[in-house]
């Protein structure tokens, strides 16, 4: 693991002068799927926002594809190829599915084969192509959020709790789609509370607790860890 796509070193971030994430270091290799698992409030979202420029980190560095992206603005980081799908999705509610997807390709015009790729990954979006995003169900919105992120052909897809608000059935469908994307060679960093799903998808993982990385290992090692089993897998 010498060729890191993303390398985060000593990252701290928080709100109103109080850090929520403390001295976090992690890396994602090209083609890897890495999970960050932790309970609600462990600091996963804050960490992701600080990595992708939506929030200023109080310390630490973010290196992506050998370029220093520390303190770069969010839109510049997206254009560098690191695309973040937040748990709140942030879709454009009064625009059609197709327009939402088109914006994913910004500043370029959307290419037909990209839209086709997204529609193949999420056939439901094709059926809803002209519908306004704000009128869709939670599961469909999640598909659209991931689809929109894919439109820029990202080098790294960062997903924050892609199962938020989804029924168990829809959640496993979402992970089935992510498994397909992984097979396409996409590099993914996913934060998740639903630990069995995340560890089923990932190659490696980090356990985040109270804003610190408590444990790291392969997905299998984490799944076998007694602490993880007790805290997150309920066994």
């Amino acid at each position: 693991m010498t060729d890191h796509l993303l390398r985060v070193e000593g990252l701290s971030a928080g709100y109103l002068g109080e850090n929520v994430v403390h001295d976090v270091s992690l890396s994602v290799g090209k083609g890897e799927v890495v999970a960050v698992i932790g309970s609600n409030g462990a600091g996963k979202s804050t960490m992701f926002k600080a990595i992708c420029g939506l929030q200023r980190a109080t310390s630490g560095t973010v290196e992506f594809a050998h370029a220093d992206l520390t303190a770069k603005k969010a839109h510049a980081i997206v254009r560098a190829g690191m695309v973040y799908v937040p748990a709140e999705r942030h879709l454009f509610p009064h625009m059609s599915v197709r327009d939402n997807l088109a914006l994913g390709a910004y500043p370029k015009r959307p290419r037909p084969e990209q839209i086709e790729f997204v529609f193949n990954t999420f056939p439901r979006l094709k059926e809803r192509a002209t519908q306004h995003a704000g009128t869709m169900s939670g599961g469909e919105q999640q598909m659209l959020a991931v689809g929109r992120a894919l439109m820029s052909s990202p080098r790294l897809l960062m997903l924050d709790e892609p199962t938020t608000g989804l029924s168990p059935l829809l959640a496993s469908e979402a992970y089935a789609a992510l498994t397909d994307l992984r097979a396409e060679g996409l590099t993914i960093l996913v934060a998740e509370q639903q630990v069995p799903l995340a560890l089923g998808l990932a190659d490696r993982g980090y356990v985040l607790d109270h804003g610190r990385i408590e444990l790291t290992g392969t997905a299998q090692e984490l799944a076998d860890d007694p602490g993880v089993r007790k805290a997150y897998l309920g066994v």
Partner: peptide, 23 residues
């Protein structure tokens, strides 16, 4: 493209930034 980007900032500025739009 720019017109759509404008509407995206109006509807959800954070979403727009996540699409690479500079508000």
């Amino acid at each position: 493209t720019f017109g759509r980007a404008t509407r995206s900032v109006i509807q959800d500025e954070r979403g727009a930034r996540l699409c690479g739009v500079n508000p």
